[in-house]
């Protein structure tokens, strides 16, 4: 089994307050680890740390490894760590298709080929004909699916989910959860899921880590 996402003895502090100390965590490809904890316990901070989005005020030690690469000092854009928030954050000035093409890895070349691939994925997600739609006109569930699709098209080596189901209706939530975990398992992507919701953790079915 190739190494997935590995955190080695991660300590993060801000303003002299230690959020987590010597955290070790390894997530295998296709595995989903759920991270739980109270507000302010540093869940989102850890997500930002792994993704390379942490603000300057923070101090940290330890390292992050992904697929055997040490990505601790890399810029966010080079880490290949995908990110999904509670809000879909579809770019409001781009159409659905343009959002997907922005995400689609540049290694897929050729205008026509890229377009076909994105349209095909859209259809498989049950959104055929949505290419030229304004993201603002989509329903919450549709937007969530587009956001997931955009993230996966970038071909990330790991996926961080920061309360991604929080804003969905309960019915939609379980459907979308299934879609996400099916996809990441299929593609062998290690997933770190941050949530408040026990049902999310249950659906993920993997280990649960709780930050104090």
């Amino acid at each position: 089994m190739r190494p997935g996402l590995v955190l080695k003895s991660v300590t993060i502090a801000v303003d002299g307050r230690v959020l987590m100390e010597n955290l070790d965590l390894a997530i295998a490809p296709g595995e989903v680890v759920t991270l739980m904890g109270q507000s302010g316990s540093g869940k989102s901070t850890l997500v930002n740390y792994i993704g390379g989005h942490l603000d300057r005020g923070f101090r940290a030690s330890g390292s992050v490894h992904l697929g055997g690469r040490n990505i601790t000092a890399m810029p966010a854009a080079e880490r290949r760590v995908g990110l999904l928030f509670q809000d879909d954050l579809l770019f409001p000035h781009l159409s659905v298709l343009e959002n997907l093409l922005f995400g689609l890895a540049a290694s897929v070349r050729g205008r026509v080929a890229r377009r076909e691939l994105a349209v095909g994925e859209l259809a498989r997600a049950g959104l055929s004909g949505f290419e030229d739609r304004d993201p603002a006109t989509l329903s919450g569930g549709q937007r969530a699916r587009v956001a997931l699709l955009r993230t996966l098209l970038a071909r990330p080596d790991a996926l961080l989910l920061d309360e991604p189901f929080g804003k969905l209706d309960p019915g939609l939530r379980s459907v979308f959860r299934t879609v996400v975990f099916d996809q990441t398992r299929q593609q062998g992507i290690p997933v770190l899921l941050v949530t408040h919701d026990g049902a999310d953790a249950e659906a993920a079915g993997g280990r649960v880590v709780t930050l104090a």
């Binding site: 930002n48 989005h53 810029p75 080079e78 809000d87 955009r150």
Partner: peptide, 22 residues
């Protein structure tokens, strides 16, 4: 919203591309 830029960076976009395209 700073998370647009983070989303874009998570999708592999460089600083310059995030600035110009997002």
């Amino acid at each position: 919203d700073g998370r647009y830029a983070r989303s874009a960076a998570a999708l592999g976009a460089s600083q310059v591309r995030i600035l110009l395209a997002i």
